[in-house]
């Protein structure tokens, strides 16, 4: 029987915008936004291309407490330009992570939570987006000398491009059923490799390969959670409490090379093959 009380009280994270997500995850009354939209630090590149800029450039930076722990949240607004990262939004995220690492060097144990709804580089700011993403990668690695970085891909945009690499650098990754995580967007793979390799319109196919459930079942994500604010917050909190993992996923080259060596790469791949290859020893 469906638990109607639970259903009535649950609150979707996916349906919230970036700012509301950050607010919802932080302890009541602790949310403080940095570089908020009223300061109007906007993309210097979009208007000249006929694209209307947004006052926060699609990235929300907020400090606060998450279950009592000091965190900075960087949340990407998937509804603005597909969550793409341009110069300003990218610098907001990189700069926040850099300051969090600096906090730690000064004895303040700031952790970071990244809410990733993004197609990756904003192509209208191409090389500045790419450079900002390299800065974000650098800062995620730097901060993890001290504290964990938790990535959350809730959906519905998913996490792609250079930011999927950022997700791969996190200490822990939380995904929902709505999440997708992959390097290349389906359209681009179809464009580069052809319809037979990747049909970007076949949604069940895409979810079966890159969806949150599959990523979790293949060990490429740490938590698979319902789209519910309270549950997601609980999982993030637990992961932050755990502290740094002994070895994050991006430090396991030998293990992954060993697994890939076992694979017959001749036939085209099925989702179950990935699960067996990556989780075989545990299932």
């Amino acid at each position: 029987m469906t638990d109607l009380t639970t259903l009535a009280n649950s609150c979707s994270l996916v349906e919230l915008g970036a700012r509301q997500r950050a607010q919802a995850l932080l302890d009541t009354g602790t949310f403080r936004e940095l570089l908020d939209p009223f300061q109007r630090v906007m993309s210097p590149w979009l208007a000249r291309q006929g694209v209307v800029p947004q006052a926060d450039d699609g990235v929300v930076i907020a400090k606060g407490l998450l279950n009592g722990l000091p965190v900075v949240i960087a949340a990407i607004e998937g509804a603005f330009q597909g969550g793409s990262l341009g110069e300003v939004g990218g610098a907001k995220m990189a700069g926040a992570l850099e300051l969090a690492a600096e906090d730690n060097r000064n004895g303040v144990p700031t952790r970071a939570v990244l809410l990733l709804e993004t197609g990756g580089v904003r192509l209208q700011e191409a090389n500045l987006g790419l450079a900002a993403i390299a800065d974000i990668h650098a800062a995620i690695v730097d901060l993890q000398q001290y504290q964990p970085v938790v990535g959350v891909v809730a959906g519905s945009v998913g996490c792609f491009g250079g930011m999927s690499i950022a997700a791969g650098l996190c200490s822990y990754l939380v995904v929902t059923r709505e999440a997708r995580l992959g390097l290349n967007g389906p359209q681009v793979i179809e464009q580069e490799a052809g319809l037979e390799e990747y049909d970007s319109r076949d949604r069940p196919f895409i979810w079966s390969l890159t969806g949150g459930e599959q990523r979790f079942a293949s060990g490429l994500a740490d938590r698979y959670v319902a789209d519910d604010v309270v549950q997601i917050q609980q999982h993030i909190s637990e992961l932050l409490q755990q502290g740094l993992p002994a070895r994050r996923r991006s430090q396991q080259a030998a293990l992954f090379l060993h697994r890939l060596a076992q694979l017959d790469t001749e036939p085209q791949i099925e989702p179950a093959t990935v699960r067996d290859l990556y989780r075989g020893e545990r299932s």
């Binding site: 791969g168 390097l183 290349n184 390799e197 990747y198 790469t265 085209q268 093959t273």
Partner: peptide, 9 residues
């Protein structure tokens, strides 16, 4: 860019 690549992360 390929199916194997995306599937295997």
């Amino acid at each position: 860019y390929g199916r194997r690549e995306e599937a295997l992360g």
